[in-house]
Write a protein that binds this DNA or RNA. Structure first.
Lengths: 221, 221
DNA sequence: CTGTCATTCAACAATTCTATTGAATGACGA
DNA sequence: TCGTCATTCAATAGAATTGTTGAATGACAG
């Protein structure tokens, strides 16, 4: 290692963090960990990746101070080290959304086809919920719902949305949310519900953003 | 390229941005560009790097939508594409500051030795300036000062701080700022001024953050 | 103590990133 | 049109990153 002045040393540290964010799989891991802490194996299962691969990426994230590890018996429980990680993710996403034409292309080509309406903002949702005007569904898997969800939301995992919507007597508009602003599941859910004749919209972003905004979070006992 | 679902495609785009931020030299380039747009050659001179190297890194930053290029005669003028780039930089820096022990070590080992006092916040500075209680100096090079500075600030490039402080009749506390929160120059300036018996403090961060906060910026005519 | 199992480590080839060099491009002024 | 000059491109070698494999570690249960 060459001699560095403090300025270069600091830039090097900052670049460690950015470098750690610079891999699609690691970003996906962060989004999953934002739903709640997980073991290596559980995370590997969620992402359909070899355990060793996930373990290595977790090491990389840990070296960058992005995740923290805590041993729990024979498991090692990983979780996001800090809420500032979410802001960094959001900031990077923001640059990409504004500046990369490819993002726009992907969004138009896939997401817009499934949701041509303006999403519901967090503020709007709170008003609608208070006035009892909407049914809020959390389309994430059961385990993620259990770790924390918007108070009043019903857990309807994506695969069960069709069955649920025919069974339940829904007289109100449905609002769906999942892991984050571009989480595919809520788009799919809204598309499926509309195809069945329901009135449905997406929440503008997901659980981690809700929590980061300081809003109340419900946990399954 | 393998077949990707939209989720993976989006993560890949986000990772392009993060990857572009994942190099110390590129971060330094961003901090310089945040002072104002520059040509390839000018930037290369500032960073003491070969022109071709800077050019290539600029291409990388441009592909990631971080900088934008604009031809101006025989020069190509590069500047930050968006203010969101600064928030992304700040967010990454924030994670590093909170989570990486090495950052703390560098800061303690170098910066604290030069400035053991709490920096002046932007709000404080505005009050102090309004009441005429401080002399504000911008210790960046002349060209960067010209592109935008805090109204009321005097440009005293780092190398001229000693001479200036003996010449000028200073009866007030001095506040120094430069390129950003960890810009070495303002630490050096404060250390030099204190060694000469003056009362001096740093502004908590630099010009880009001042501007990003929506505060007024003065430009040399 | 021993077996089991979650996790990590070590080593490898494949790929990507990096800095350097020198040549190519393209805009300006004469 | 021609020379000059800022910038970019192309090619290279060297370094770092990636995913895979299988073995090592370390904690728990019996």
């Amino acid at each position: 290692m060459s001699i560095r002045n403090p300025k270069q040393a600091l830039y090097e540290q900052f670049s460690i963090v950015a470098k750690a964010l610079g891999h699609p799989l690691r970003l996906e891991m962060i989004e999953h960990l934002a739903q709640g802490g997980r073991s290596v194996e559980a995370l590997a299962a969620k992402l359909s990746q070899p355990v060793a691969n996930i373990s290595q990426h977790l090491q990389a994230l840990r070296r960058a101070g992005i995740v923290s590890a805590e041993r729990d018996g024979k498991f090692v429980h990983y979780s996001l080290a800090d809420d500032s990680v979410l802001s960094a993710f959001a900031a990077v996403r923001g640059v990409a959304e504004r500046q990369l034409a490819e993002v726009d292309r992907i969004v138009r080509g896939y997401f817009d086809a499934r949701d041509d309406m303006r999403p519901v903002t967090r503020d709007e949702l709170q008003t609608l919920m208070r006035d009892g005007l909407v049914t809020l569904i959390d389309v994430r898997p059961k385990d993620e719902f259990a770790l924390g969800h918007v108070p009043g939301a019903i857990n309807v995992p994506l695969g069960k949305v069709r069955a649920w919507s025919t069974d339940a007597a829904i007289g109100r508009e449905i609002v769906a949310y999942c892991r984050g602003p571009w989480c595919v599941m809520s788009f799919e859910a809204v598309a499926a519900l509309r195809a069945l004749g329901h009135s449905a919209r997406r929440l503008e972003d997901g659980m981690p953003e809700w929590k980061a905004a300081g809003l109340p979070v419900a946990v399954v006992a």
